[in-house]
Computed example of a mutant assay.
Amino acid sequence: MLTMNLRKASAVAASVLALSLTATACGSGDSDSSSEGDGGGKKITVGIKFDQPGIGLKTPDGSFTGFDVDVATYVAKELGYEAKDIEWKETPSADRETALERGDVKFIAASYSINDERKQKVDFAGPYLLAHQDLLIRADDNITKGADLNGKKLCSVTGSTSAQNVKNDFAPKAQLKQNATYSECIDGLASGAVDALTTDDSILAGYASQDQNKGKFKLAGLSLSNENYGIGVKKGDTKLVDDINAALEKMVSDGAWEKAVTDNFGPADYKNEPAPKIGNIVS
């Protein structure tokens, strides 16, 4: 009788253990299925800028606006995610490669120019926008070429190569002024403390399009460099690159791309390039 009871107890214990292992496995599977993956209501984390008007901006009410936000939202939808399924993560320029390598984000749309150095660390879909380095000047100013900046005060952010490029290549007598943020340069431009702000024309157009800046500034319309904006993904994820490229092509063909350009840059009278062809990098 004792032996029979022991056998029954052992059988019950084995059953409990098996059920426990099964539950654990199912729990793990449920956790995986609720993370990023194949869409269907699951969450996806996307890297953007939080501080670039017209590109990627977190507003005081906690919402997000900008061309990159519109592109990323469209792409995420084509991958199977609704807007409510997107978790936006701030990815400053210096952190973009690391965020992809660690898997902190699924993809990044953050004024992310494609270049050979970055392609060693991440893969890119796109490009989806061809931007150019340009100047933002006061609306009544008449700077029409880089050389016009000789003797004038040129502003950019600390650590940026844009202002130095202008001084090296176009206006050696320009007076460089570096601030911590573009907003400080904008304030200096408005007050007359500086004569021009330089960075990508898309970023400049975003600032000029803000309600408080409308009519005060204009883009000089100079193409001082080519910046091919791509969507960064983790190195080796070729399927995701292909899926994003398909989404970008659809966004162009159905008119959503042009609408996003107009919505985000229109007030600055931004003379954007046509939508680039996938894989066509303009040097």
Rank of each mutant, 00 (worst) to 15 (best):
S160R: 03
G47I: 15
G47F: 07
I114H: 05
F124Y: 09
D169I: 01
G37N: 07
K152D: 06
A11Y: 02
T59M: 12
P267V: 07
L149I: 03
G146M: 03
D116H: 13
T45M: 05
K277P: 08
L130S: 06
F170M: 13
N245W: 05
V105K: 01
K89V: 14
I114D: 04
A196N: 07
L176K: 09
E97Y: 12
D38Y: 10
L17H: 02
Q210A: 08
L100V: 12
F124H: 03
S35R: 15
S223L: 10
V233Q: 07
Y74S: 02
D70Y: 01
A147H: 02
G56I: 01
N168G: 07
I137S: 09
G126T: 11
K259D: 15
I108H: 11
S10G: 15
N150V: 01
K58P: 00
N264T: 05
G27E: 05
Q178L: 15
I186V: 11
C185E: 11
K77M: 11
T91N: 01
E78H: 06
D141Q: 09
A256K: 07
D68M: 12
V157C: 01
P92Y: 02
D169T: 10
G206H: 00
I86C: 01
A208M: 12
A180Y: 01
P267L: 03
T144L: 07
Y128Q: 11
G103S: 08
N264I: 02
P53Y: 00
P267H: 00
K177P: 01
D242K: 15
G192A: 13
F64R: 00
S156A: 11
S34C: 03
L130R: 04
G41I: 04
A174S: 15
C26Q: 14
F217Y: 02
G232T: 08
D211M: 08
R96K: 10
K216A: 10
N272D: 14
T238V: 10
L204Q: 04
K250A: 05
S35V: 03
K153V: 11
D68K: 13
D169R: 10
R7Y: 13
E78Y: 04
F67N: 14
S33P: 09
N5K: 13
L79K: 03
T238P: 06
Y112Q: 11
D95M: 15
I281W: 05
D30P: 08
L17P: 00
S93F: 06
T65W: 00
V282Y: 04
N115P: 15
R102V: 14
Q175A: 12
V12I: 04
T3K: 14
D254W: 03
Y74P: 00
S191W: 00
L21G: 14
Q164G: 15
V282H: 05
E87M: 03
K218L: 04
S35Y: 01
V261L: 10
L79D: 08
R138P: 01
K271P: 08
D140P: 09
C185S: 11
L130H: 00
L136K: 11
D187N: 05
S15G: 14
G39M: 06
E90M: 07
V252C: 10
D263W: 06
Y270E: 00
A139P: 03
N179Y: 06
P60T: 14
Q210D: 05
L197A: 13
T262L: 05
V233A: 08
G40N: 14
S283M: 10
K106V: 12
S93P: 05
E258F: 07
A13L: 11
P267S: 06
I44S: 00
K84R: 09
D140N: 08
V46I: 15
N213V: 06
E184N: 12
A72V: 03
